[in-house]
């Protein structure tokens, strides 16, 4: 009250927005409201403007360590649905929806494909996979000789690149992940089932009557 910033940064989403998001995702209205508590905490960690910046996203993933990281950047870019350089609440809910245990396998496969298609070419290409492998080795302080990395890439592309054109298309990716379901483990966050228990304070800010 009395603060001209309070509307955008702090106000709970309008009832109809919450209801729409719940209708179009796997979340209930209460869960969308609980997600708003999480969103509010992340989006106010650096600047309390009701939007998640890349810096705030990285802080949330890596806690206190400031880290510029290929994978975190990629996830941020995919969450930034409207390509505004920030994540708004709607982007946040719709993106997390793919990670819901009840989200469809097709959505999880499609999102994971886009995650690895670093340059948005519509294909997962060998240089992209090599770039990600090198980033992973750097991040985890693991060292592998270049010929070992090439061997891993050879093996992966023999298995995944069925028409052997040097890149993995969406159909090849679908076949590959169905044969290797563990690859989709990162696409499900069991935590999302219990979001209202984790952020019970949503009850005090709720716009809906029947919780």
């Amino acid at each position: 009250m009395g603060c001209f910033h309070s509307k955008s940064a702090r106000q709970f989403p309008a009832q109809e927005n919450t209801a729409n998001l719940a209708a179009e995702t796997a979340f209930t209205v209460s869960e969308v409201e609980a997600l708003f508590e999480l969103f509010r905490s992340i989006s106010s960690s650096v600047v309390d403007d009701g939007l998640i910046s890349k810096e705030e996203f990285q802080l949330a993933i890596f806690k206190n360590k400031k880290k510029d990281n290929l994978f975190a950047n990629r996830i941020f870019d995919l969450f930034d649905v409207k390509k505004k350089g920030v994540i708004d609440f709607e982007d946040f809910v719709r993106s997390l929806n793919v990670f819901h245990p009840n989200a469809s396998l097709e959505d999880k496969i499609a999102f994971s494909f886009r995650l690895y298609d670093l340059h948005n070419t519509g294909f997962i290409e060998r240089p992209e996979v090599k770039q990600m492998l090198i980033a992973l080795l750097f991040e985890s302080d693991m060292k592998l000789a270049d010929d070992v990395i090439e061997t891993i890439l050879d093996k992966t592309f023999v298995e995944a690149d069925l028409n052997q054109d040097g890149k993995i298309d969406t159909e090849e990716w679908e076949t590959f992940v169905k044969k290797n379901p563990s690859l989709l483990k990162i696409m499900t966050l069991p935590y999302l089932r219990d979001i209202t228990t984790s952020f019970p304070s949503f009850i005090f800010n709720s716009n809906v009557d029947e919780i």
Binding site: L38, S41, I42, A60, I61, F62, K63, N69, L70, F71, A72, I75, F99, Y116, V129, M132, L133, A135, L136, E139, S140, M142, L144, V148, T151, I152, L153, K155, T156, E159, A160, F176, N180, S182, L183, K185, I186, L189, Y191, I195, S198
Partner: peptide, 25 residues
């Protein structure tokens, strides 16, 4: 052993993909 895994098995082990961190207060 890393060599016995495919590239995506390795990449998906990146800590940065662990979005559960988002929920830790």
């Amino acid at each position: 052993k890393p060599v016995s895994m495919n590239a995506f098995e390795l990449i998906s082990r990146s800590q940065s993909f662990n979005l559960e961190n988002l929920f830790e207060k």
